[in-house]
Design a protein around this nucleic acid. Structure first.
Lengths: 189, 189
DNA sequence: CCGCTCATGTAACAGGTTACATGATTTA
DNA sequence: TAAATCATGTAACCTGTTACATGAGCGG
C-alpha cells in the first residue's frame, strides 16, 4: 500500500489540496508516482481519518472552497516505518514491451507506429523533467545544489524519472532501427 | 487487460505449461512482465475458454500430469488487435522512489541500506539478463543476430530489461553518494 | 456560449496480491 | 528426513481504473 506513502511524501513540501495533488500525480508530470484523482481524494479521506494528515478548509471568494492537507507527526512516523520496511522490487509492466516481445508475429508497421509515438511521449517528458530540475536547482550547479540544497528528495526522484524516460526513448529508437533494417533485408529477397 | 497479451506473447516461442509460465514471469527473471502463479493459471483457463490458446494434456510417469498450451489463430489475431490499439504510457511505481522523495525527512542510514540492497538486486538482474542475451544470440554478434535472427522479440525486450536495471543501479549508487556527502558536510558543523 | 480549470466526490468493475490447499518426486 | 521442485488450483481481499455526477467561474 504505497499510494498513501506517496501522498505523504508529496505533502512534505507544503500543504496541498486534493486537486493540487492530482496535478502532482498527473499523467504528464508524475516523476515518482502516478494515480487517478479519485484514488487521491479517497486516500486523503482515509489518511485524515487515520490521523496521518490534517486538512483545513480555505474559503475562496472566486473559487470553490478547498481543503489543504498537511502531514502530521503521526504521518511522519508512518513514513519512517515505511522507509524501514523492505521495498518491493519494481518491474517493467508496459503494454509496449509486450508488443515488442511479439514483434516477430505482428505487423511491423503497426509496431513501428507505436514505438514512434512512445518516442515522442518520452522526449516530451525528458524536456519537462529537465525543466523541472532547472527550476529546482535555480542558479546553483547540480553538484552544489545536491551538496547544500535544503530539499533534495524531489530533485533525486526527478533524476530517476529523467533517466527512465531516456531509457524508454533510446530503446524505442533502437528497436525502430532494428525493425527497419530487417524490413529492408527482407525486401531484397 | 495486458496480462493475457503478455501470456500470449510468452507462448509464441513454443508450448508451455502453467508452471513453466510461472518461471518466465517470475520475480527473478521477468524481463517484460511480472505475474503471480495464481494469476497465470486463472488467465490460462480464461484464454482457453475464449479459444485463444489450446491445451493438451501430457501424462508423465515420474511427474504429475501437466497441460501444455499453444496460441491459436484466434490468439494471434487478438495479439494483432492488441498491437494496433493505443498502448498505455508506463510509469515508475516504486516504493524505493517514494522513500527517496521523502529523503529529507527520514533516517538517512535506513534509506542508504535500502538503496544498497536495491543496487545488489539490480546488479544480479543485470548479470542474469546479460547471460540470457548471450544465450539467445549464441555465436553471432548482437548486430548480426538482430539483423538476421529468426526470433528477436525476446532479445529486444531483454535489452529493455537490462537498460532498466542499469538505470536502477546507477541511480541508487548516485543517490547513495549524494546522501553520504551530505552526511559528511553536516558532521563538520 | 463553449470549453477549460477549479474542486470534490460515489459506484461499479477490472486487475493484482495473499492466504490457503493438495500431493507426488527428487535432491541434499 | 527436510527442503526444493513439479503441478494446479480456490477464495478472500486489496488496489486501481472507468464511468458517472455536480457546480461555479474564467477565457476566447
Amino acid at each position: 500500500m504505497a499510494l498513501r506513502h506517496a501522498v505523504l511524501a508529496a505533502l512534505l513540501d507544503g500543504e496541498l489540496s486534493g486537486y493540487q495533488l492530482t496535478k502532482v500525480f498527473d499523467l504528464g508530470v508524475a516523476n515518482f508516482w502516478h494515480a487517478q484523482p479519485q484514488q487521491l481524494y479517497a486516500e486523503l479521506t482515509r489518511l485524515e481519518k487515520d490521523g496521518l494528515v490534517t486538512g483545513r478548509e480555505v474559503v475562496q471568494d472566486t473559487r470553490p472552497t478547498k481543503r489543504l492537507f498537511t502531514v502530521t507527526d503521526a504521518g511522519l512516523a508512518e513514513l519512517d516505518r515505511f522507509t524501514a520496511a523492505a521495498a518491493k522490487p519494481s518491474f517493467i509492466r508496459d503494454d509496449l514491451v509486450v508488443k515488442v516481445q511479439a514483434a516477430d508475429h505482428v505487423d511491423t508497421e503497426t509496431l513501428i507506429a507505436q514505438l514512434t509515438e512512445r518516442t515522442a511521449f518520452a522526449q516530451a517528458k525528458i524536456d519537462l523533467f529537465a525543466e523541472l530540475l532547472r527550476g529546482m536547482r535555480g542558479e546553483r550547479t547540480e553538484e552544489d545544489f545536491l551538496r547544500h540544497g535544503e530539499r533534495i528528495g524531489p530533485y533525486l526522484t526527478c533524476l530517476r524519472g529523467l533517466a527512465f524516460e531516456r531509457g524508454n526513448r533510446d530503446w524505442c529508437e533502437s528497436v525502430i532501427t532494428v525493425l527497419r533494417e530487417r524490413q529492408r533485408a527482407h525486401a531484397r529477397h
